[in-house]
Amino acid sequence: MSLAELRDGPLDDAAAFGGQGEVGDYLALLKPRVMSLVVFTALVGTLIAPSGIHPVLALVAILCIAIGAGASGALNMWYDADIDAVMSRTRSRPVPSGRVAPGEALTFGLTLSAFSVGILGLATNWLAAGLLAFTSFFYAVVYTMWLKRSTPQNIVIGGASGAFPPMIGWAAVTGSVSVESVTLFLIIFMWTPPHFWALSLFKRGDYEDAKIPMLPVVAGEDVTRNHILAYSVLLAPIGVAPWLLGFASPIYGAVAIVLGLVFVVHAITVWRRREGDEARKAAVSLFKFSLVYLFLVFALLLADSTLAPLVSALLPGGMA
């Protein structure tokens, strides 16, 4: 379906008569699958922050971050309905399919954004709320409305929006930004380009059809593979940084080193396999492993923070 056909079809019908969306459609606007990993990293940032926070306030903080992230997804779907209709993996979303009217998606996103920022500020502190507001603005306006359609570096700069949640969680507990929270930010920031460029390699046709200037479309697949390898090599030591900076144990450091090396091996495989089905399989494999990598790094940080005090207490003299 072309952009013109979309405007004359589902979007026009939805705008004129209102969407026929059900609860599930509005939940889909929040991009729950995409945002689940974002929310998990925010949870880790909240739970490993020093001094701790009351469990109820921690729950409120995580819910606010989740709602704010979902609201950004709704605003993204509202603005990107035209190109979503062209891409095979997004054309069934609620807005391009006509199940939710564009205006309804916009109102839904703006309302949830304001609600999540306000409640987070009242429940924790206004630094965390300000970071959440900035993250939503950055994703919905800077990335979605500007970068995504204008530069092949869209995912590099725009990736910052997905890297803020653990920093928001940390700020909700401590009321500050620290080296530790910046490190968590950097892990996600450096992870984002190879993750999405791997996706863009095996979904290049979609981006071409939607006229999105992703790196493979603008600079070619070989340049994209070079960039993936470079960012993967940079990511590996940053993933180990929590141990090097002293807020994670040597066990975390050892596992992070292994995970980083596996990530680089996947990137090298993508760099070497440049044609045919083998090239596609390598890109898919890197994309899937990148999800595992980010989850394991943050899960290990959480386990390390939770178990280290327990192990220390059980050691001889630990209970003295």
Rank of each mutant, 00 (worst) to 15 (best):
M1C: 10
M1Y: 03
L11K: 00
D13H: 04
Q20G: 07
V23C: 03
G24R: 14
Y26E: 10
L30D: 03
K31A: 06
G45C: 09
A49Q: 12
S51L: 09
H54N: 14
V56A: 13
A58D: 01
A71V: 04
I83R: 10
D84S: 01
V86T: 07
R89L: 11
R93D: 09
P94N: 06
P96R: 04
R99Q: 02
G103A: 03
E104H: 01
A105R: 02
G109N: 09
S113D: 08
A114Q: 09
T124I: 02
A128Q: 00
L132G: 08
F138R: 04
Y143I: 12
M145R: 13
S150T: 08
I155R: 08
G159D: 15
S161F: 12
A171E: 02
V177S: 01
V177K: 11
V179A: 14
F185L: 13
F185Y: 11
M190Y: 13
F196N: 12
F202D: 04
D209F: 09
P213M: 13
V217S: 13
L235V: 06
A236S: 03
G239Q: 05
A241D: 13
A248W: 03
A254K: 07
V255S: 10
V265Y: 09
T269I: 06
R272P: 05
R272V: 02
L286S: 11
L294D: 11
L301I: 04
L302P: 06
S305N: 14
L307W: 06
P316F: 05
G318A: 15
